[in-house]
Nucleic acid binder design. Sequence first.
RNA 1: CGGGGUGUAGCGCAGUUUGGUAGCGCGCAGCGUUCGGGACGCUGAGGCCGGAGGUUCAAGUCCUCUCACCCCGACCA
Length: 566
Amino acid sequence: MRISQLFGKTQREIPAEAETVSHQLLLRTGMIYQVSAGVYSYLPLAWRVLKKIENIIREEMDAAGGQELMMPVLQPLELWQETGRDRAFGKGLFTLCDRRDRSLCLGPTHEEVITRLVSQYVRSYRDLPRLLYQIQTKFRDEPRPRAGLLRLREFTMKDLYSFDTDEAGLSQSYDKMLKAYQNIYARCGLPTLVVEADSGAIGGKDSHEFMVITENGEDEIIYCPGCQYVANADKAQSIKSKVDSEQPLPLEEVATPGATTIEKLSNFLRIAPNRTLKAVFYTADGEIIFAVIRGDLEINEVKLKNALRCFELHIATEAEVTGAGIVAGYASPVGTRNIKTVVDDSVTPGVNFVAGANKPDTHIRNVNYPRDFKADITTDIAKTHAGEGCPKCGSKLLSTHGIEVGHIFKLGTFLSEKLGAFFTDPEGASHPVIMGCYGIGLGRLLAAAIEQNHDDKGIIWPVSIAPYHIYLCPLYLDSPEVVATAEKLYKELETEGLEVLFDDRQESPGVKFNDADLLGIPIRVTISPRTLKKDSAEVKKRSEKESQLVPLENLAERLKGLAGAE
RNA sequence: CGGGGUGUAGCGCAGUUUGGUAGCGCGCAGCGUUCGGGACGCUGAGGCCGGAGGUUCAAGUCCUCUCACCCCGACCA
C-alpha cells in the first residue's frame, strides 16, 4: 500500500478527547473515528488489524472443534422475556419497535438465539457435544462508554457456545476453550492472566476472565504471591481479621450525638471500628434491603447482588430510607421488622458490637447475632483488599489492575430449561443441555494490544496483528536511483507475500521516521543515496534501537525471515 | 442516573470578565529553498462560534431552554 493513497492521516497533536494511551494512539494514527459515544468507524489500518485478530481467533476456534455460524443482530424481545434476561440487562438492552409495533432488541449477546436454535436441532445425546461460535456485532447501551475501544456500545465479539450432556463434558469444553484462549492471546502477543470472575448478567457458576495487566486497567485484580490464587476484586475472598469473642452482655443504649459515621462513632466511644456494625440500605428491584457488615469492612455490591439474586441494586435514596421508617446514620438491624436483611459472615461471631438504635443520636452496645437481630441471608458480602489474608494459603494478598479481554462461563442449564433445549439420553430420559459460553471482544483486544505494546513514539505492533509487516521508507525522492530501487523493492516484497506500507510521500526524513514509529510497523526499511552507495538498505525493527545495513541482493529473503520469525 | 468539565476551521487552543469587522499554532493547497528524527519563506483556501429562543441599534460574548462529547462513581468483551 502506498501511503500517498492510504485513506487516513496521522496527527501530530494528541486529541483532547483521549486520555488512555490506546485511545490517543488509535486517533493519532488515523485508525478510528468516533461517530457517537462508544461507536466508531474503523479506517483501513484498524480494519486490517481487526481482521488479523479475527482470523487468529477463527483458527483457534476451528482447531478446538468449533463450528462457525451466523446469527442476527435483530432479535425479538419476547425471546429475552422467556429467559428473564431482558431484566438482567435492564437498560443495557437497546430496544426498538418495528412497524407492526412488535418489540425487538439489538442483540447484546446471543445465548437466547442459539439456545432456541439448538433446541430445534439437538434431540439426542448423539447430537452432542457441539461447539458453535460466531463473530458478530453486538450492542449494549453502556452507562458510560469510555477509553476509545475499551468500552463500546457497538462492538464486535466472538462468542462460542458449548453444549454438553453432562458436567464432565462441560468441563472438557471449558478446558478446551481455556487453552484455545491462551493460544489466541499468545499469538496476538498479549500476556494474560487467568482470573476467577463473577458471572454478572450472563449468569452461571464457574467463570474466568482473561486479563491483560496494565496499571490503568479498569478492573482490580487480587492475587496471592504465595499460591496460585488470582481473582477479580469483585469476586475475591479473603480471611477476615478476627475479633476476640466475648461473653454476650445485655443490650445498653448509649447517647452518641453527631456520630453518624463509623469513624466518628469509634472515636466518640473509643472503640475499634471492628467492634461496630455498619448498616447500609439498598434498593434491590424496588425492595428496601438492609445490609449489615462489621464497621471496618466495606460492602461489595457485586457480592450483595448475587446474594440477593436481584437484577437491579442501588444504595437507597434518602426518600426510600425514611419512607421505610429508618433513621439514617443511626440505622440498626435490632428491632427492624419486615425488611430483608443480609448479614456479612464477619458479624455472626458474637462480640458485643455497637450498632445504631434507630433513633437520632443514639446507639446500642452489646449487640450480638443471632440474639438481637435476625438475618435473612448470611454470607460473604465484603470487599476484599490487598493486605488481607489469602483464602487458600493465608499469605498477604496483593492487587493490580487489568483489562478484561476475554470471559468464559459455565452456564449450566438455566437457559436450555427455559428455552426447551433438551436431549434424550441412551435410556430414553430427557435432560436439559448443559451450556457454556466464551467471549472475546475484538476491539478491546486491539486496544489492549496497544496499551501493552507502545512507547512514547507510538505503537509497537506484534508481527502477528500488525497492519503491515514492512514500512518501506525511501528518503530523497529527487534521487531517481532511490525511487527506482524503492519501487523495485516494493514489488519484490509484495510478490514474496510480505505486506508493505510504502512511504512514497515527498516528505522530510523526520516526518517519515516519526510516522513509521507512530504507526508501529514491525520492520522499517530505509533506502537513501547513503545506503545505496553500499548497495544496501537500512533495516530497523520497531522494537529495537539498533538498525543494520543489509545488502539489497537478498533483502527480500532476509525480510521474510524477520517478518515470519517473530 | 449522581458529581465535575468542554463545545469557536480537520486537530490543539485564544477570544466570553467589560457586547462593536472571528484570531493563533499545526494540518491543507500553490511556488521556491531545504532534507538521516515532526525544516523555512512567501501566497492562499477553509468558520451554521453545538442548537433553539430571547435581550439589544448590535451577541462567540448577556439571559432561558436544549443537545452532544469527555472525566469520576454503579455495569461489562
